[in-house]
């Protein structure tokens, strides 16, 4: 008993010393999870299915931005406005590639099934098939090794929070994630197309009676989720490089985040992402680094057992 208390105290010491730097890293990861989680939640909202090929949308965004940055960047690390420009290019390319890939995926793997009123299981199998196809294709075409993303900056700490350095990379993630999520949230809540998406999520047939083109709305929904997922792939690649299997673990964590926040709920996806990122990061104080990835999936199982509707529950329908 005494020994256990001593053991715990040691870990809490680590937590106390490292808290702020773990928190900063966790929040940054959380933003990436949240951006990817939004894609699961949007698609679930309108189709009531989990797009298990979303991991490959993420990868596509990573590779597309990698190739473009490699093509446009010189050998020296840019600074000032050039840094900003390169990051912007990475975001635009990653987002566009993600949106295109998601739209194409919807056309090929989902719409064809919808036309035939296929059972839900068929969608799942189709998604897993598409996912295998895409990442194996990437492995074959782009090689099996992790490639570093060209760096648009030297990753200096920009400032410190309670002694914990906050690097430029983390700021880029948080800024890009926050802006994209806010724009998406407003788009869904306050524009006509966004209202169409919510109408389809609540009652697709009645939405079509109102003049909403369901196919087009679903395509837009995939494109939106794909854009955020693709940018997530770029931001992740900026820190961890790109490789054909890069989507697997982050996307599974993002799925966990979506479930944690309440699948179908846009705000829940972002909140779930942040909670997951932070909890996972703080857990480093208690478990070996090798168990890092296990924490997220333990959380997934726990949420599914305790509160399957997530923290906020399902409600893509709501405007506020």
């Amino acid at each position: 008993m005494g020994a256990f208390a001593h053991f715990l105290a040691g870990h809490f010491d680590t937590l106390r010393l490292e808290f702020w730097s773990l928190l900063v890293g966790g929040v940054a990861n959380g933003f990436i999870y949240g951006m990817v989680a939004v894609g699961y939640t949007l698609v679930y909202g309108v189709l009531r299915l989990i797009n298990f090929a979303h991991s490959e949308i993420f990868m596509t965004g990573g590779f597309a931005s990698y190739f473009v940055l490699r093509a446009v960047m010189g050998t020296s690390v840019p600074s000032g406005w050039a840094t900003f420009g390169v990051i912007l290019v990475g975001i635009v390319v990653g987002g566009t590639a993600g949106a295109l890939a998601a739209t194409l995926l919807e056309r090929v793997a989902y719409r064809t099934l919808r036309r035939r009123n296929a059972p839900k299981l068929a969608y799942l199998i189709s998604a897993i098939g598409a996912s295998y196809f895409l990442f194996n294709l990437a492995g074959k075409e782009f090689g099996r090794y992790n490639e570093s993303m060209p760096q648009p900056y030297i990753n200096h700490p920009v400032f410190t929070i309670f002694g914990a350095p906050v690097q430029l990379y983390y700021l880029v993630i948080v800024a890009a994630g926050a802006v994209m999520w806010l724009v998406l949230d407003r788009f869904v809540a306050a524009t006509k197309l966004g209202r169409g998406i919510r109408a389809v999520a609540q009652d697709a047939e009645t939405a079509s009676l109102m003049g909403v083109n369901i196919d087009r709305t679903i395509a837009i929904t995939f494109a939106l989720g794909g854009a955020l997922g693709g940018v997530g792939g770029f931001l992740f690649g900026l820190g961890s490089g790109v490789v054909y299997t890069m989507g697997f673990v982050p996307a599974l964590k993002a799925f966990t985040a979506a479930v944690l926040g309440g699948i179908g709920n846009l705000r829940g996806a972002m909140i779930g992402g942040l909670i997951l990122g932070v909890v996972e990061s703080l857990s480093i104080a208690f478990v070996q680094a090798a168990y890092f990835d296990v924490v997220a999936f333990a959380i997934l199982v726990l949420v599914l057992l305790v509160r399957p509707t997530g923290i906020l529950g399902e409600r893509l329908g709501r405007s506020a």
């Binding site: 609540q202 009652d203 047939e205 079509s208 009676l209 003049g211 709501r318």
Partner: peptide, 27 residues
């Protein structure tokens, strides 16, 4: 197609009303 009828001038009040439950009256 269904989504084209409203623009053609046919409005439909469906069986069971089918109000969007999580939208305000105004929405």
């Amino acid at each position: 197609k269904a989504h084209q009828f409203m623009a053609l001038g046919i409005g439909h009040v469906p069986e069971g009303r089918r109000i969007f439950p999580q939208m305000s009256v105004e929405e």
